[in-house]
């Protein structure tokens, strides 16, 4: 078994590992680095539970190899809160009851974060389209959409205050 060296920055911390080329990025995060907030729900890149940011772009980490991410900046759900202060999306998902079982939530939050980076003031249709690659089986998306809308407002307000 040949291995290759991978060095990534995860949530601001440099992490390194020797991995098989076939190791999926989600397994590097979950099993090698112990960052189990990123979930696997489908294997076919439909459900989005494994969504993270790679170099600022949202990505489905079950359909990416760890070696492809060598040198990349990675952000996962574990990197969203600032200590005790929740990210506005985390706060909004809590406030709006935007989660039930919580399994899709990390991927949903990461995708929403990317979406709001692209479009700070999305319409409801744009929010729904923006999370169309993330499946939730519990909420019917109603409160997820409300949460993203709340967070968009909070982020815009924070931006305006700067």
């Amino acid at each position: 078994m040949t291995t290759q060296h991978v060095r990534v920055t995860v949530n601001g911390t440099v992490r390194e590992a020797d991995v098989e080329p076939r190791l999926l990025l989600v397994h590097l995060l979950r099993e090698t680095f112990g960052l189990t907030g990123t979930h696997v729900g489908c294997d076919t890149s439909n459900c989005g539970a494994c969504t993270i940011h790679v170099n600022g772009l949202s990505a489905k980490s079950c359909t990416m190899l760890a070696v492809q991410a060598d040198g990349a900046e990675i952000r996962t759900i574990e990197g969203m809160a600032d200590g005790a202060t929740l990210h506005p999306l985390q706060q909004a998902f809590w406030d709006q009851h935007g989660l039930q079982c919580g399994f899709c939530t990390p991927g949903m939050i990461m995708q929403s974060a990317w979406l709001l980076g692209q479009n700070p003031d999305p319409t409801e249709d744009q929010i729904r389209e923006g999370i169309s690659g993330n499946l939730c089986r519990c909420t019917g998306y109603v409160n997820i959409v409300k949460a993203i809308d709340q967070a968009a407002g909070a982020l815009r307000a924070a931006d305006a205050a700067k």
């Binding site: 989005g48 949202s58 489905k60 990317w114 690659g133």
Partner: peptide, 8 residues
């Protein structure tokens, strides 16, 4: 696909 797939 979806936004993530379009990103990559």
């Amino acid at each position: 696909g979806d936004p993530q797939i379009r990103n990559w």
